[in-house]
Design a protein around this nucleic acid. Structure first.
Lengths: 223, 223
DNA sequence: CCTACCGATCGGTAGG
DNA sequence: CCTACCGATCGGTAGG
């Protein structure tokens, strides 16, 4: 089972390529462990309020070890944010695909209202569901990363939001959404993202309840 | 003009009462200067990301001087928050009073829609207008104060939000607002508060534009 | 990835 | 309110 014997030359040569920078490396699952620990602590205490020693300890490492995986503290924050956005985008795409498939099976088409419901519900999932520290950190700590890193995160964010634009425009066209759709989008995201501040999963409201309430609030009655 | 000669005994005796604690004192306007400087820096850089030296420098003082006015850094943050909430509550009450007076002058009554418009516009004022650092700091740094201080701020916040409750209930009763009014209130505050993250006063949208867009988004057509 | 460490910065205080 | 200062903590690194 020795790879060094059975690998073809092309792959063998790739072992000699320049080493990845510290924040791209992935030795086992230690990097993921650090990311999860950082996400949780950054969410609880904020970026400036969390020391790299806190993060190391939460990941079961020694104080200097995070810097083996990440160039500096800021790169760790940026990695939490990009990881969060990538998860959110994948989750959203999967949810839309699943809804479209289910509609097809049932011989229906997916209306704009259905699309918005799927988008809102999927958004609540990544915002308030299990493993949901990454997106809140991105939402509330973006001022702590440098401009170039912020731009990279913003590109991911634009991709995520792009799925909403045609849905809101369609709803506007059919009279279910009043006013400029792009102002409406900003306010809708605000209403949803704010739930991070008050939602208590131990209370009676479920994510489906929140989704229903949001659609009731934003959309006009069908004509 | 010597007060020590003309003051009656009762007031003279009051000079001997226990000294106010440091964070209640008000020597000239230095305390206000510190509060403003702290609000601006806390908003820009966050609580943990701002040093008391930064604040002192912004107020034109030496590094140790803030501690003459405030017991510690946390008390300074709490003072920014309570100051912000008191201003916001006063501003809101004045706006409602002015609208009611104007309606009376014109021989009309103030409907629930009018009330909501006044509340939303007043909220945008304290959130996005001039001197608007205090409320964003309260919204986004509340996790940085201790539980007892947080409770004091929350009492002020409840008072502020209390004005919204009957208005939203009335709108719900007349069919202009769908769904549970208290969930709607949380989402509406989210939509408005989120504007802190994206509103650019140099762009074309005015606070009146935002107010109009918000009412369009939340309210159903009049029956 | 750990050990041992450095320089810088921070909140806060004594004493005037 | 300033001067001078302390102990603690922090981000980060060398060397293995």
């Amino acid at each position: 089972m020795s790879a060094s014997v059975s690998l073809p030359p092309a792959q063998r040569r790739s072992r000699g390529r320049p080493r990845k920078t510290a924040d791209e490396r992935d030795d086992g699952n230690r990097r993921q462990l650090l990311l999860r620990a950082a996400a949780g602590l950054f969410r609880q205490q904020g970026f400036a309020g969390t020391s790299t020693r806190d993060i190391a300890a939460a990941a079961g490492m020694q104080p200097g070890s995070p810097f083996y995986h990440f160039e500096n503290k800021e790169a760790l924050l940026a990695a939490v944010m990009t990881e969060g956005m990538e998860r959110a985008t994948r989750h959203q795409a999967a949810a839309m695909q699943a809804a479209a498939d289910a509609a097809l099976q049932a011989g229906r088409v997916l209306g704009a209202r259905d699309c918005l419901q799927v988008l809102v519900r999927s958004h609540f999932d990544v915002l308030l569901g299990p493993e949901s520290d990454f997106i809140p950190v991105m939402l509330y700590e973006w001022r702590s990363i440098s401009a170039p890193q912020r731009e990279a995160v913003n590109r991911l964010r634009s991709g995520y939001e792009a799925a909403w634009v045609p849905v809101l425009q369609a709803l506007h066209a059919q009279g279910a959404l009043q006013g400029d759709p792009s102002l409406a989008r900003l306010m809708i995201f605000g209403a949803l993202n704010w739930a991070v501040q008050w939602y208590d999963p131990t209370r009676r409201a479920t994510l489906d309840d929140l989704t229903h309430a949001a659609l009731q609030l934003f959309l006009k009655e069908p004509a």
